[in-house]
Design a protein around this nucleic acid. Structure first.
Lengths: 319, 319
DNA sequence: TATATTTGCATAAGTACTTATATAATTACT
DNA sequence: AGTAATTATATAAGTACTTATGCAAATATA
């Protein structure tokens, strides 16, 4: 039994506080689960800084309608977490200009998808017609307490945020083309033959017995890789490309790991790949996954590659 | 501008807290204005004790869904204000039974009408159809901030709680009869002649040039008094009666003060009254207002009275 | 019947605010 | 130009909660 709920309108003050605490705690848990070092009570100020790009203590106080010491305390916390930069105004030396630090920018890009989900989920349980504030509150509180609120968020995270690797489907072909063309344009140049192969993955890769994998998040394709059949036991790892706005998120490594696992499961003897020594980061990762440099053949299929690497799977398989 | 309002659903936690703070502060102000020593955050626990009559720390915690130390802290505060009594259970010495103290009972009777008004006013601004929780919150917060909420409460207090004195109207006649008959039954006995006079106040009091006044609160008549004309300058103060459940609220004194003020304004020379020495409290108050004992005539109109008192107004008028 | 566990409440310390006040820089006033 | 008032921010202390922990009494367990 919940007496505070039955107390009705006079207990509304305490009630609002209790639901606030509940929601804050739930949100904090969510951040922790996602390994994001952030507190929900920082949100209004942090978001204000993001929206205004450059602001001051006083401006935040005015916009959020909280006390000035509260703003100072929140800013201290954000500064300790290194999420903001402070700079004293040149003309008015009392004023401190607040901007996001690069760590703040990074956090923002990490946390924003979560905010979207949070927003969507809160809307799910608060946007409906009701005859009174208490009716809305009762329903929302119930949904937090019985776990529906958190469950919905977790489901959304799974379908929208988690990156999964899936096999080729016809409708992914355009993404396969776009991602690879973009990659070629950035690091090398696009030849006619590239366009031919990339626009017909079914014909050039799948039908000869190869595979294409995609890293997808929600309904967005973030990256791709292909295993082209050399012979029954040996496949070339190629056509790896990650969308430009998705780099530095280890998507390439996810695709690589998936490919290797796939190769092992299907008892391939080895994977090999062609690359270019100017792609230092890529080579570093290939080595990390166990690829070893071998001499490049004279009749290498790619003009742009000056290095060939191979990953032997037989030994590993025997473990 | 209020950015927190525009942040929408993600900022809901902070939003709820802010509105809670706002409402609590407003309520605290209300208590202070009414000279009631109480804090809004004590309400849920205090009300639980009232409802259950007898309860424990743990029970309150369970009913209100707050932490046990919070309950202990609130109970400490209530105990300091002497609003509750604590008694250790005889069988289980860990348990403390909580009941209202007599001071708590008094506070309750004082504060309850305020709670009714609070409840009504909160309902006024929160019970209406809306499409989302935020819509309800926005409206309610706006009404608190622009002062409408407090204004409505103050108006309600004026019309419902403040006791005003009004002159006779035909529709008050039954209350005049009931209040006086009850008073006679309690302290003396009812004679046929009493019933005749009390049931026809227009004929016996008003038409001969007298006046009847009523203490009313909201639409409830709490007490009455009559000024019966003796001659142009001398009136008998009589038929004073206060509803049994309204005694000890100084309503009699209000009626008395009003009568004296009325007499002065109309340039009466004196007021006089008949009473009985067994009504000690009443006589005390008559003296307090300046009435002086004089000999009772042999042909006093009331069998029940053994004392006559008079208040001379001429001297006072000349000041 | 002794010991472990649970229960009822208290205490201590932390948190996210608040109000009150301090401090230094800027602006207004005469 | 000198002084008062205002403004931007910081610091200190209080408040109404929280979590963590303590302690004694009651109950369960072996």
């Amino acid at each position: 039994m919940d007496l505070l709920q039955t107390l009705g309108e006079i207990g509304l003050g305490s009630r609002l506080k209790r639901i606030s605490d509940l929601l804050m705690k739930e949100t904090q848990l969510l951040y922790r689960n996602q390994n994001i070092d952030f507190d929900p009570y920082l949100f209004p100020a942090f978001n204000t800084i993001i929206k205004l790009k450059k602001t001051t203590n006083t401006e935040i106080r005015e916009l959020l309608h909280i006390s000035q010491p509260a703003v100072t305390q929140i800013l201290n916390k954000l500064f300790k977490k290194e999420l903001i930069k402070l700079k004293i105004d040149e003309l008015d030396k009392r004023k401190k200009w607040i901007t996001l630090s690069s760590k703040g920018e990074t956090l923002y890009s990490e946390i924003q998808p979560l905010w979207n989900i949070l927003d969507k989920t809160v809307k799910k349980y608060t946007v409906f017609p009701a005859d009174s504030l208490l009716e809305h509150l009762n329903y929302f509180e119930e949904k937090i307490k019985n776990g529906d609120f958190m469950k919905t968020i977790q489901e959304q995270i799974k379908t929208e945020l988690e990156i999964s690797i899936v096999a080729h489907k016809k409708e992914y072909a355009p993404a396969f083309y776009d991602l690879n063309i973009e990659w070629l344009q950035t690091y090398f140049y696009v030849e006619e033959f590239d366009k031919e192969v990339l626009s017909k993955p079914q014909q050039y890769i799948i039908e000869p017995g190869g595979h294409i994998f995609y890293a997808i998040q929600g309904d967005e394709i973030l990256g791709t890789v292909a295993l082209m059949k050399d012979n029954e036991k040996s496949f070339e790892l190629t056509k790896m490309a990650v969308a430009p706005n998705q780099r530095d998120k280890k998507i390439g490594q996810k695709l690589m790991q998936y490919s290797i696992d796939f190769a092992k499961e299907n008892n391939f003897d080895k994977l090999f790949l062609y690359s270019n020594t100017k792609l230092e980061n890529a080579i570093y990762i290939y080595r990390k996954f166990g690829f070893i440099e071998i001499p490049v053949e004279k009749d290498s299929p790619y003009d742009r590659s000056d290095i060939k690497m191979v990953l032997e799977l037989i030994m590993i398989n025997k473990n």
